[in-house]
């Protein structure tokens, strides 16, 4: 049991990210309402961000802002500036995924805004947000 629990906890974030992503993906493909598709898209994108951020986590590490109190690791830096301790990389969270995900969040909100604008335009033209109703209207008005 303990082994199983350890195994479960060791990768828990990854399991949940897969579940969230699949919920989002399913909604994007299968939902009929355009806004619901976009809700799914948000969940889908956040799940990927969750995956990336989980990559960078280190156990018992501090946030990636250096305040001068980082755990020194053998000796000092051999530069003119002797006050600065040599930082043990184990004690600071990996900043790269954070940088990447800042970009991804911004891309996500841009895509969402664009998609919402398109959805509003669809509503303007077809007076509906349900995919099947829109397709039915398209079939009817095919000859205009």
């Amino acid at each position: 049991m303990d082994v199983f629990l350890d195994f479960l906890i060791a990768k828990f974030n990854y399991w949940i990210y897969v579940i969230l992503m699949m919920i989002g993906l399913f909604a994007m493909i299968a939902k009929n309402n355009l806004i619901k598709k976009l809700v799914g898209m948000c969940i889908f994108q956040t799940a990927i961000i969750l995956f990336y951020v989980s990559i960078g986590v280190k156990e018992d590490a501090r946030i990636p802002i250096l305040t001068g109190h980082e755990v020194p690791h053998g000796g000092h830096y051999h530069t003119e500036d002797h006050e600065r301790p040599y930082i043990d990389a184990k004690t600071v969270t990996n900043p790269i995924p954070h940088v990447l995900m800042l970009t991804a969040i911004v891309v996500g909100v841009s895509t969402l805004g664009m998609a919402l604008a398109i959805a509003q335009k669809v509503h303007l033209h077809y007076d509906s947000l349900e995919e099947d109703e829109i397709l039915a209207k398209l079939q009817l008005g095919n000859n205009d």
């Binding site: 906890i9 060791a10 989980s54 990559i55 960078g56 986590v57 280190k58 990389a89 990996n94 995924p97």
Partner: peptide
């Protein structure tokens, strides 16, 4: 994948 929170995973180290 390496365990979550592993400071010695390829990405973190």
């Amino acid at each position: 994948l390496p365990d979550w929170g592993d400071p010695l995973s390829p990405a973190n180290a």
